[in-house]
Design a protein around this nucleic acid. Structure first.
Length: 405
RNA sequence: GGAGAGGUGGCAGAGUGGUCGAAUGCGGCGGUCUCGAAAACCGUUAUAGGGGCAACUCUAUCGAGGGUUCGAAUCCCUCCUUCUCCGCCA
C-alpha cells in the first residue's frame, strides 16, 4: 500500500499519478478527509489517555497512603467509557481508510512512459535471430501430440481445461528447463529456495494480492488459504515483519514453484494450449534492496531473465510497460516476450517489476539504514520481482523454434 | 486427532494487578585506560504513531485478537505458534 503521508502532504500529486494509470483519482479526496479526521481523533483520545494514566498513578499512590479513592475511581470510570467509545470510532475509521488504501495501486515512476492502454507500451530491444521456416510450422498442440510429449486432452480429463499433462520427453524437457534456470540464477547470485505453495490470507495480503485479486486465486475455504499465483508471494513473505541488517542487502532469492491462476474473466482469450493455463511452472526472482539501489537492481534482474532466453537462442523482445499497463504493486515494469512462429505473435514469458516500498510497507520488511555519527534508522526496503522465467510460453516458442519437417 | 508445557527487548532470562517499556546477564555501539589490544570501568542500545523548528514530549506495543478493571506483561476467553508424549499417516 501507499504511505498515507504522501496523500496527506501532496494529494494533488498522488491524484495526478493515479490518473496516469487510468485510475479514478477522486478516492484521494475522500482519503484526505478521512485521514484528517483520523488525526484529530487520535489527538483527542491520546490526550484523554494521558490524563487517565496520570490519574491511575495518583490512585496507586493514594491507595498506598490509605487515602479514599472512590471519587477518583468513579470519575475515571466515566472517562474510560468515553475513551473506549472513541477508540471504537477510531478503529472503524482506520478500517475504512485501510479498505480504501488496499485498492490504490503503486504510483508510476517518473521514467515510465505515459500511455492509455497496452498499445502504448514501448519496445526497447529486440534480440535473438528470427528463423525462417520453409514449411508451414505446426503449433505446439500439434507438435505435442505428434511427439507424444504434451497431452491437453488428458490434462483436461484430470483437472478440467487449462491443465497440461507433460509426458515422456516433454516432462523431461520441462524438468531440464527448470533445473537450467535455477542453476543459472544461482550463478547470478540468487539463493535458491523451495517454498510452500499454499499460503495464508495474511501472506497474500502482505504481497498485496488480496483483496484486489481474490477472484483470481484458488481458495481453500476450510482453511482460509490460497494456492499461490506466483512464488513471489511465498518468497516475499520469508522476511515479513523482519528488520534486515544494512550489510546483508541486497538479498536475492530464486525459487521454482507451480503457479495457480483461476484466470476468471479471461475465457476465450488465448485459451489455446499453453497460451493460458491454470497451473504452470515458473522460476521466480525476488530481490530485497535499499531504496536507492532498486532501479539498478531492476536492470540487473531484467538482464538475468534475458540471459536465460539468450542461452536458449530464442527470438524475443523487451518492452517497457506504459503507465496504464504496469502491475498493481509496481512502479515500473518490463515484460519479456518470446516470438511464436505458429501463433505469429509475441508471448509474454517474463515480467520484471520494481514494487518499491509498496509491498514492504504492509509486509513490514525493513532494514537498518546507517546514518552519519553511528546512528541508524529503520527504513522500508524495496522489493522487486521477476520471472526467470515461466516455462509454459517458453515451451511454445522453444518447440516451434526447434521444429523441422 | 488426544494429553501436557511454553511464547517477554538482538539473544538469554526475571517479573503473577499500581511510576514495568519492563530487573539482571550476554551481545552491539560510544568513551576512559593502553604504544596497541584484552580485561576493567562509565555511558548508551526497541518499534509504530501523534505534537513540536528543535531540545523534547505524549500514546500504543511483553505471540495475535477480544474481555474484566480507575489501572493488565500479570486475571478471563478465543485464535496462532513452539516443544514433549500418545495415536494416525506419505
Amino acid at each position: 500500500m501507499l504511505d498515507i503521508k504522501i496523500i496527506r502532504e501532496d494529494p494533488e500529486n498522488v491524484k495526478k499519478k493515479l490518473s496516469l494509470r487510468n485510475e479514478d483519482p477522486q478516492i484521494i479526496e475522500k482519503l484526505y478527509e478521512l485521514d484528517k479526521s483520523r488525526l484529530q481523533l487520535i489527538h483527542t483520545t491520546e490526550t484523554m489517555k494521558e490524563n487517565r494514566n496520570k490519574v491511575s498513578d495518583e490512585i496507586a499512590v493514594m491507595k498506598k497512603n490509605k487515602e479514599n479513592t472512590d471519587g477518583k475511581i468513579s470519575e475515571m470510570k466515566i472517562e474510560s467509557e468515553k475513551i473506549k467509545s472513541l477508540d471504537e470510532e477510531l478503529k472503524s475509521l482506520d478500517k475504512e481508510i485501510d479498505d480504501l488504501m488496499r485498492y490504490i495501486p503503486n504510483l508510476p515512476d517518473e521514467s515510465v512512459p505515459h500511455g492509455k492502454s497496452e498499445k502504448d507500451n514501448v519496445q526497447i530491444r529486440i534480440l535473438g535471430d528470427k528463423k525462417i521456416f520453409e514449411f508451414k510450422i505446426k503449433d505446439h498442440l500439434q507438435l505435442g501430440k505428434d511427439l507424444d510429449i504434451l497431452d491437453f486432452e488428458r490434462g483436461a480429463k484430470i483437472s478440467g481445461s487449462g491443465f497440461a499433462l507433460y509426458k515422456g520427453k516433454g516432462a523431461r524437457l520441462e524438468r531440464a528447463l527448470i533445473n537450467f534456470m535455477l542453476d543459472e540464477q544461482g550463478k547470478n547470485g540468487y539463493k535458491e529456495v523451495m517454498t510452500p505453495v499454499i499460503v495464508t490470507r495474511e501472506s497474500m495480503e502482505a504481497a498485496e494480492k488480496v483483496p484486489k485479486f481474490e477472484e483470481d486465486m484458488y481458495y481453500m475455504e476450510k482453511d482460509d488459504m490460497f494456492a499461490i499465483p506466483t512464488a513471489e508471494v511465498s518468497i516475499l513473505n520469508i522476511h515479513r515483519d523482519e528488520i534486515l541488517a544494512n550489510e546483508e542487502l541486497p538479498v536475492r532469492y530464486c525459487g521454482f514453484t507451480n503457479c495457480f491462476r483461476r484466470e476468471a474473466g479471461s475465457y476465450g482469450k488465448d485459451t489455446k494450449g499453453f497460451l493460458r493455463v491454470h497451473q504452470f511452472n515458473k522460476v521466480e526472482l525476488i530481490t530485497f534492496c535499499k531504496p536507492e539501489e532498486s532501479y539498478d537492481e531492476m536492470e540487473k534482474m531484467l538482464s538475468h531473465a534475458c540471459g536465460i532466453i539468450d542461452k536458449l537462442g530464442l527470438h524475443y523482445r523487451v518492452i517497457e510497460l506504459c503507465t496504464a499497463d504496469i502491475g498493481f504493486a509496481a512502479s515500473k515494469c518490463y515484460d519479456i516476450e518470446v516470438w511464436s512462429y505458429a501463433e505469429n505473435k509475441w508471448l509474454e514469458a517474463s515480467s520484471v517489476s520494481n514494487c518499491t516500498d509498496y509491498q514492504s510497507r504492509r509486509a513490514m520488511v525493513r532494514y537498518k539504514k546507517q546514518l552519519e555519527n553511528n546512528k541508524s534508522k529503520t527504513e522500508l526496503v524495496h522489493i522487486l520481482n521477476g520471472s526467470g522465467l515461466a516455462t509454459s510460453r517458453l515451451m511454445v516458442a522453444l518447440l516451434e523454434a526447434l521444429s523441422d519437417k
